[in-house]
């Protein structure tokens, strides 16, 4: 990290701490949602942007995390233990799903995760004795941290912010570690990565499982935030929404998913005057973005910057997606 980047991160963090002060409940709640979805989208970004695999079950993993946390906290287990179990469950499920799917190429993971998300929805809806069926689960307590209750929306926002910073820090560390560098090598040029001794399948599987674990963590946060969970919140459409968050922000960029989550969560508010046409406009924007800038908004930003301030041309073969 250069000194300038550190400064920007510190400024951003200060901004996030100051932002909810003096705001109404609704805005604080929306910002908390943004934090939660950012964590989940960050995980998906590892799968999609770094390992290059499409996962259509990120909302499903959030569901796993949310239900595990809900059931455990309702039974009196402290939140932190429940969150830990949620993360591990999602991680193991990710390994189990990814192992067979990644034996074959061609986005098979997309299909397996699609099936998983749909199956999970059916199980959550049908097993009423455990999951409450379509009535869902209510009344999950908000956690106490060091004796401080997080019952008010503002204090829960700060709680979520701490979780968000921890998650972002872990992600940063993963990406900087030899593992993370291996993910990047894989994305830039899989053939060369393999020739350098990287196990492509193992790396991809690990990326997917870690990404899923982030989803589980986000779910564990969503339970005390919303305090009401039901199967429809984790249906396939929400997985697609998460996928769009990552891509709109810029997959493969560290801050892409956070930007994307902000766009996807805030856009409905901005486009409220268009009423029913919101999703139509949104879908059109996504298609246009994909046509003109597959790197998402951050990619588009880079393009504009490069045009305004041309620098020395980087080597063509170092570019994303270039293959020999």
């Amino acid at each position: 990290m250069t000194r300038l980047q550190m400064l920007f991160c510190a400024l951003g963090l200060a901004g996030l701490i100051a932002a909810p002060l003096g705001q109404g409940n609704y805005i604080v709640y929306t910002m908390t949602s943004w934090l939660v979805f950012s964590i989940s989208a960050m995980g998906l970004n590892l799968t999609l942007g770094y390992a290059g695999q499409v996962s259509l079950a990120q909302a499903g993993f959030m569901g796993v995390g949310a239900y595990v946390t809900a059931l455990m906290t309702l039974a009196g287990v402290p939140w932190i233990a429940a969150a830990f179990v949620s993360i591990s469950t999602s991680f193991v499920l990710g390994l189990l799903l990814g192992y067979p799917a990644l034996r074959v190429q061609h986005h098979f993971l997309a299909f397996v995760t699609l099936a998983f998300n749909t199956l999970l929805f059916l199980v959550l809806r049908n097993e009423e004795e455990i999951t409450g069926g379509s009535f869902g689960l209510v009344g999950m307590p908000r956690p106490n941290v060091l004796g401080l209750a997080t019952d008010s929306n503002l204090s829960f926002y700060y709680f979520a912010l701490v979780c968000f910073v921890v998650a972002a820090g872990v992600m940063w560390w993963i990406l900087r570690s030899p593992w993370g560098r291996a993910f990047k090598a894989l994305r830039e040029n899989p053939i060369r990565a393999e020739s350098l001794g990287l196990k492509i399948r193992r790396q991809t599987l690990l990326a997917f499982a870690i990404g899923s674990a982030f989803g589980g963590f986000a779910g564990a946060l969503q339970t005390p935030q919303v305090q009401f969970i039901e199967p429809h919140s984790f249906a396939l459409i929400h997985s697609l929404k998460l996928l769009l968050m990552v891509v709109v922000g810029g997959s493969g960029f560290f801050f892409g998913p956070m930007l994307g989550a902000a766009v996807v969560i805030l856009l409905p508010e901005v486009l409220r005057f268009t009423e029913g046409y919101y999703l139509i406009i949104y879908a059109t924007l996504v298609i246009l973005l994909m046509v003109y800038s597959p790197g998402g908004l951050i990619g588009a930003g880079h393009k504009i910057r490069d045009r305004l301030m041309p620098r020395t041309e980087a080597r063509r073969d170092m570019e994303k997606g270039f293959q020999l």
């Binding site: 997309a110 997959s251 059109t284 996504v286 298609i287 597959p294």
Partner: peptide, 9 residues
């Protein structure tokens, strides 16, 4: 990948 996303949209 962008095409997959675009068809979803």
């Amino acid at each position: 990948l962008p095409l997959v996303i675009a068809t979803i949209a």
